[in-house]
């Protein structure tokens, strides 16, 4: 089985620190194998299903989750452990994944993408002709 190499987009996050509101974060993920294929889970706290974009293009699966910022008037940040920002990560899918049957669902801020294996037909014997 070919490896699927998750490639976090490097053009995000770094760069201008002029706008701290525009943070893009790389969500942590799990990928595990099942009988039917692969399952990918990503932590996207604060992202609702309607704010999530998932797309497959040229073997690349991209997930983008928009976080609605909790901007409250007059709020003073006293302690910070995480930056508010949207989630972005993309992956290269192996050829084994059936692109047409990819399905996804969101539960409590966790995205689960099911990547089914391409169902292989029975091996066909090719008769070799001799000249």
């Amino acid at each position: 089985m070919t490896e699927d190499i998750p490639i976090p987009d490097t053009d995000s996050g770094s760069g201008n620190d002029v706008e701290p509101q525009k943070w893009v974060r790389t969500p942590p993920i799990d990928i595990f194998e099942t009988e039917a294929g692969l399952v990918l889970r990503a932590d996207l706290p604060g992202v609702s299903s309607e704010n999530l974009e998932l797309q497959v293009q040229d073997n690349r699966l991209t997930l983008f989750g928009r976080v609605t910022p909790t901007d409250i008037e007059g709020a003073v940040l006293m302690h910070q452990e995480y930056q508010q920002g949207d989630f972005l990560r993309s992956f290269i899918l192996s050829d084994d994944v059936d692109h047409d049957r990819i399905s996804a669902r969101m539960t409590n801020g966790v995205l689960e993408v099911t990547l089914p294996k391409v169902s292989r037909t029975q091996p066909r014997k090719i008769s070799i002709q001799t000249d």
Partner: peptide
């Protein structure tokens, strides 16, 4: 991970 805010007479 958590953030702590102070909003007037309330903490969030």
């Amino acid at each position: 991970s958590l953030n702590l805010y102070e909003i007037g007479d309330e903490y969030l």
